[in-house]
Simulated scan of single mutants.
Amino acid sequence: MAQQPPHIAIIGAGIFSRNTYIPRLAEISDLFVLRAIWTRGAVEIAKKFFPNVECKWGETGLSEIIDDVSIIGVAVVLAGQAQVEMSLRLLKGGKHVLQENYYQGLNIVAYSAVSELETAMSCYNSFNVAPIWAIAENYRFEPAFVEGRKLLSEVGDIINVHTIIEGSMNISNPYFSSSWRRSFEGGFILDMGVHFIAGLRMLVGCEITSVSALTSHVDGTLPPPDNISSTIQLENGSSGVFVMVVSSKSPKVLWRVVGLKGTIQVERGNIDGKHGYTVMLFTGDGGNKSWFYPFSGVTDELKTFLADTSLATMKKDQSFPVEHRLSFLEGARDVAVLEAMLESGRRQGATVQLARYRANLSAVSLDTVAYVTPYS
């Protein structure tokens, strides 16, 4: 007998839920059944694609989703500060969770001994059955970074890496007026930057061991800081820079890895009306090749979560390791780098080591949210 598609729910009706999650889920609607959406704010949009979806709200509606044994997976797409508490409640109720934002709620700073992370993971590990706890970080699923990583052997030993981010967070951007993104230290640097760090770590295939950064606040319409310039040290011995400006009149998003035998470049752009990334390989003989990959990270990420939840449900104890790109630990490491940069900025460029943070993370039992190195 063919396995039935998993039944899932969505918690949240913010901008990303309405504009991205629901439309992307509609593209793969043959892979699952959307049973419920918790909020009134997005039900009309959801019903355009999923006419049978039930609208839930309030404490009663949330309890109904948790008590519904047919719903095995939930996408939590709330304001960052509410993510962890909601995820833990759903996990305790036996639901597999795809948590959209990692950082707030776990206010991880390089010198905080990750106490909040340890508290959350201790709570998670106390559950009799620990479902999948996945952290959405769609850049790791973008084909440009997957394919760019495969090209690393073509450029030889890494000499230098640099990431240049000139964003366009202004009044025309739908996220500009988002209040929750303005209510924590780091603001858009942390909210946006964690994705760019994920892309960087995916591309270079090794960890960042230390950073030294300077930050400042120039644009008064944005929360501080609104720009950051950081040097980074990689565990392979090479170094580089990470520069991010939250709002620029001439946006640019670029990663570049310079090696002994060539260079890899990944740059965001638009070709024939499709938004995505161009991957370029420059070789030592003066040649170059390029490939364009349209955005598909969110869709591929959702497909992976749905597949993992189905496989986990087939096992009676639900013990199934989530795909490494969705792992809780990968999200933690992305945030650790940004928090270390912000910490360094507060200390006028002092070097901040990430080794201690990673050691603490390694001591945290992840159980079913298993970390499998993506770089081997």
Results as ranks from 00 to 15, higher is better:
residue 355 A to K: 15
residue 267 E to C: 10
residue 215 T to S: 05
residue 56 K to N: 12
residue 340 A to Y: 05
residue 233 Q to D: 13
residue 221 T to Q: 01
residue 340 A to N: 02
residue 178 S to N: 14
residue 120 A to D: 04
residue 128 N to G: 11
residue 70 S to P: 11
residue 23 P to K: 14
residue 194 V to A: 10
residue 110 A to D: 02
residue 329 L to T: 00
residue 50 F to C: 14
residue 274 K to R: 06
residue 215 T to Y: 01
residue 160 N to Y: 15
residue 75 A to H: 09
residue 161 V to M: 11
residue 356 R to T: 12
residue 129 V to M: 07
residue 339 E to Q: 14
residue 133 W to M: 13
residue 257 V to H: 04
residue 337 V to E: 05
residue 310 S to H: 01
residue 109 V to L: 03
residue 117 L to A: 00
residue 196 F to N: 05
residue 252 K to N: 06
residue 85 E to A: 14
residue 24 R to L: 10
residue 263 T to Y: 04
residue 165 I to T: 00
residue 228 I to C: 14
residue 109 V to S: 03
residue 360 N to K: 14
residue 186 G to P: 00
residue 116 E to N: 15
residue 118 E to V: 07
residue 98 L to A: 15
residue 177 S to I: 00
residue 141 F to I: 11
residue 292 F to P: 09
residue 329 L to M: 13
residue 32 F to W: 12
residue 244 M to C: 05
residue 38 W to Y: 12
residue 168 S to F: 06
residue 87 S to F: 03
residue 139 Y to G: 06
residue 259 G to Y: 02
residue 217 H to Y: 12
residue 29 S to I: 04
residue 160 N to E: 05
residue 367 D to P: 11
residue 12 G to Y: 09
residue 209 T to M: 03
residue 20 T to W: 02
residue 16 F to C: 07
residue 274 K to Y: 06
residue 52 N to Y: 00
residue 142 E to H: 06
residue 366 L to A: 04
residue 167 G to S: 09
residue 202 M to V: 03
residue 9 A to K: 01
residue 209 T to N: 01
residue 163 T to I: 10
residue 15 I to L: 07
residue 88 L to N: 05
residue 165 I to E: 13
residue 66 I to D: 02
residue 173 N to K: 12
residue 77 V to I: 03
residue 374 P to F: 06
residue 11 I to Y: 13
residue 255 W to R: 05
residue 99 Q to A: 13
residue 194 V to N: 10
residue 150 K to L: 04
residue 336 A to W: 12
residue 346 R to T: 03
residue 337 V to D: 04
residue 179 S to M: 11
residue 55 C to G: 08
residue 8 I to F: 07
residue 247 S to P: 07
residue 305 F to D: 07
residue 232 I to Q: 09
residue 165 I to F: 09
residue 375 Y to M: 00
residue 95 K to W: 00
residue 343 E to Y: 05
residue 79 A to T: 08
residue 237 G to I: 00
residue 275 H to V: 02
residue 90 L to I: 12
residue 47 K to N: 12
residue 274 K to D: 01
residue 1 M to V: 03
residue 178 S to W: 11
residue 255 W to M: 11
residue 93 G to Y: 03
residue 143 P to T: 01
residue 348 Q to G: 11
residue 185 E to L: 05
residue 227 N to T: 14
residue 367 D to F: 00
residue 242 F to Q: 13
residue 323 E to R: 12
residue 10 I to F: 09
residue 149 R to D: 12
residue 15 I to F: 05
residue 177 S to E: 01
residue 63 S to Q: 11
residue 278 T to W: 08
residue 344 S to A: 13
residue 290 S to G: 07
residue 66 I to Y: 00
residue 340 A to R: 12
residue 342 L to Q: 10
residue 33 V to H: 15
residue 354 L to T: 14
residue 89 R to L: 10
residue 145 F to G: 09
residue 150 K to W: 07
residue 143 P to N: 07
residue 163 T to D: 11
residue 319 S to V: 05
residue 301 E to P: 10
residue 107 N to Y: 09
residue 185 E to C: 14
residue 339 E to R: 15
residue 280 M to L: 08
residue 179 S to D: 10
residue 338 L to H: 08
residue 162 H to K: 12
residue 254 L to A: 04
residue 235 E to C: 01
residue 361 L to H: 03
residue 365 S to W: 06
